[in-house]
Design a protein around this nucleic acid. Structure first.
Lengths: 206, 206, 206, 206
DNA sequence: AATGAATGAGAATTCATTCAT
DNA sequence: CATGAATGAATTCTCATTCAT
C-alpha cells in the first residue's frame, strides 16, 4: 500500500469508473475523487482523459498480444489428431485465462464498441486485425497440411475471431456463472468441426 | 405532409451524422444543419438527442426482429438434410439481406458498442438476448430431432450469434468488398459442421 | 437601444474591460457580466476571447489606415511653403482626430504592447510597418522635391512614427488635459524643423 | 556561491523565456526547466513569478536611470554650439549603449507594453515619467540659456522621449541591422533642428 | 538549500435545451 | 410549425504555489 503510487491509484480508479460509466460519461473528477487525489494531480501523470484510457488499453492489449503471439504459433501444431486438439485447447485456454486475469480492462474494452474514427476505432480495429492475421496465418498452415478444410482462410479467421470474442464477452461479462472448462471444450469442438478437422489425422511424416 | 418531410429529413440526417461521428460526438447542431432546418425545429419532433437515436434504432431493431422472428421458426426446418440446409441458408441470407438493406443504421449500432448502463447497454443487450433466445429455441428443437448435436444449446447459441454478428460487422463495415454469396455459403457450412449436423438425415417420419 | 444588438453590447463591454484590465487579465465572464448576457451567449458571436479582441482591433486599424492612406498622399503636398505646412498640419490633425474619436480602442491597443509572437506582435507590428511605409513614401517625394532634407528616409519615418505615436499615447491617455491645437502646431513645427524643411520654398515649377 | 549561481541561473533563464514568450505566457516551469533546477527551488529565491520579473526590470531600470541621471545633467551642456552638440551626442550615445548592453531585458520590457493597472503600468509609466522629467529639466535650462526654442518644454520632452524610445525599439528589436553611428548622428541632428537649436551659439558669458 | 509531488482555485469553452416571436 | 438567440450547467485542463522530505 505504501508502494502503491499515485499513478497506479489513478489507473485503478480509472479502470473502475470507465467500466461503470464508459469513456465518454466518465469525468476526470470521478477518477480523482475515487483515487482520493486532487484534480490537478491527474494531469501530473496523464496528459488527458484519453491518455489514461490509451495507457490502460495498450497495457492490456500488449499483454494479450504477446501471449497470443507466443501461443498462436502452436495453434494447430501436432503430429497426431489428439496432439493438435490438445494444442488448440491450450490456445483457447490461454486466451480465456488472460481475459479472465484482466477482466476489468477486457470488459471496459468490450463495452466501448468500435468507435467512429477516433480513439476506439484505432484500438479495437487494431486488435481485431492483428488477431485475425495471426489466426489466418495458422489456419493457412493447417489447411496446407490437410488438417482442416476451409474455402477462404480470411473468412474463416473472422468466424473464429467473432466466435471467440463474443463468447468471451457473453460468458465473462454478461453471464458470469458459466463453467469455463466446459466452454473451452465446446469452443474447441465447435471450431474443429466447423473447420472440417481431420479427426483421423495421424501423420508420422513432417 | 410538411411535417412528415421535416421529421424524415431529420432522421436521415441524424443517421448520417451518428454513423460518421457516433452518438456522443454528434451535435444536434450538426443534424439540423445537415437537414437544413433551425435548431429549435429539432425539438418539435424529438424530445432529445437520445430520443431520435432511440427512434432510429428501434425502427431498425423492430425490422430485424420481426424478420428474424418470422424466419427463425424455420431455421432447422425440413424433412431431409438438403431441405434443412436450404432453410438454414435462407435464414442466413435473410439476416444478411436485412443488414445490407439497412446498412447505415446497422453500422451506427455496431459502432456504438454495448455501452455501460446507459442507452446502448439496453439496446444492444436487448438485441443480443432476443437473438440468442430465438436461436436457442430452434437449436433445441433441432437437437431433439437428432439433426444436430451440441452439449449446451445456450452456449451454442452464443457461438452462432457471435459468429454471425462479427462476420456481418467485418464484411459489411470494415472490409466491404467481399462476395456475400460465398460468405453465406461458408457461414452455413461452418455452422452446420460445427453443430455436427447430420448430413445423412433423411427422415420420412415426423 | 432597441437596435443595440447583443453583439454590439459585447463589443462595447469587451472594449471597456480590455481597457481596464488588459487582454490577458480580462475574463470572458467579466465581459458577459458587463454586457448582461449569459456566458454561452458570448460564444454565439465570437469564437474566443482572442476573436473579439481581433475584431475590435481590426475595425479600428482599418479605420485609421484608410484615413491615413487617403490623407498621407497629401502629407507634403503644396506649391508653397505655407501650403505644405497647411497640409502637414491637416494630416497631423486628421490622425489626432481619428485617435480621439476611437480613444477607447486606441488606448487598448497602446496598452497591449508589441507582444511576443502572438496576436499583438502581428497587430502592432502590422500597424507600425504600414504607417512607416506610408510616411517613408511621402518623405521620399518631399526629399526629391528639395522640400526637406534627411539622410535616410527609413530612419526619418521611424522618428516621425515614434514621435506621433508616443505623443498621442501620452496626451490622450496618460495626461488627458492638453490643448490639442497647441500640440498639433508644435508637432508640425518640430517635425518640419527636424526635417530641415525649406521654409522659403516657393516653387512655381512642377 | 552555490546560492549565487542558482539565483543567477534562474534570472538568466527567466530573462530568456520572458523575452521569448512574454510575462503572461511564461510558466515558472519553463524557467526552472531552462535553469535546470526543481520547481520548488524557484521559490527559495523569489516570492513569485512577478517578483523575479520585477527584480529583472528594476535592475535594468536602475542601470538606465542612474546612467541617464548622471548623463542628462550634461544634456545641453557646453559653451559653444559644437560643445553642446558633442554633449547631446554623448547622451544619446550613452542611452543607445546601455540599451544595447542590456538588449535582452530591454526587449523584454518593450514587448510588455504599458499594461493596465498591473505590474507593467507601474514599471513603464515610472520609467516614462522619470525620463520625461529629466529631459524636461534639461530642456528648460537650455531654453533659458537661449540655446533652443520650444513653446512648451513638457510637450517637447514627450517628443524626445517618443522619438528616442520607438527608435530604440525599432532598430534594436524589430530591424536589427542598422548602422548605429549613423542613427545616433541623425537623432541628434533631427532633435536639435526640431528644437530650433542655435547652431551659431558661441556665448563667452555665463 | 533542493526537491518535486500535490494542490485547487480558476478559466475557457461546449452544447443540449428552452422559449418568445 | 418554424425559428434561432439565449441560456447556464457542466467539463476539461492549467499552473502558480506550497510543503514534507
Amino acid at each position: 500500500m505504501g508502494e502503491f503510487t499515485t499513478k497506479q491509484a489513478l489507473i485503478v480508479s480509472a479502470i473502475r469508473i470507465f467500466r461503470q460509466k464508459g469513456f465518454q460519461m466518465t469525468r476526470v473528477s470521478d477518477i480523482v475523487a475515487d483515487a482520493g487525489v486532487a484534480q490537478g494531480t491527474f494531469y501530473n501523470y496523464f496528459k488527458s482523459k484519453e491518455a489514461i484510457f490509451r495507457e490502460i488499453c495498450s497495457g492490456f492489449i500488449e499483454k494479450v498480444q504477446s501471449k497470443f503471439l507466443e501461443r498462436s504459433e502452436h495453434f494447430f501444431d501436432g503430429d497426431t489428431a489428439s496432439e493438435v486438439i490438445a494444442n488448440v485447447q491450450q490456445v483457447v485456454r490461454d486466451i480465456f485465462r488472460i481475459y479472465q486475469d484482466n477482466l476489468d480492462v477486457a470488459e471496459l474494452l468490450f463495452r466501448e464498441g468500435i468507435g467512429n474514427g477516433g480513439i476506439f476505432k484505432e484500438i479495437y480495429e487494431g486488435m481485431f486485425l492483428l488477431f485475425m492475421e495471426l489466426i489466418e496465418e495458422q489456419m493457412l498452415k493447417a489447411v496446407d497440411r490437410g488438417l482442416i478444410h476451409i474455402e477462404d482462410v480470411r473468412i474463416g479467421s473472422v468466424f473464429l475471431f467473432g466466435l471467440f470474442e463474443r463468447t468471451l464477452l457473453y460468458f465473462m461479462i454478461i453471464q458470469k456463472d458459466t463453467d469455463l472448462n466446459q466452454l473451452e471444450r465446446m469452443v474447441v469442438d465447435f471450431v474443429l468441426k466447423g473447420l472440417s478437422f481431420d479427426y483421423t489425422f495421424n501423420a508420422k511424416t513432417r
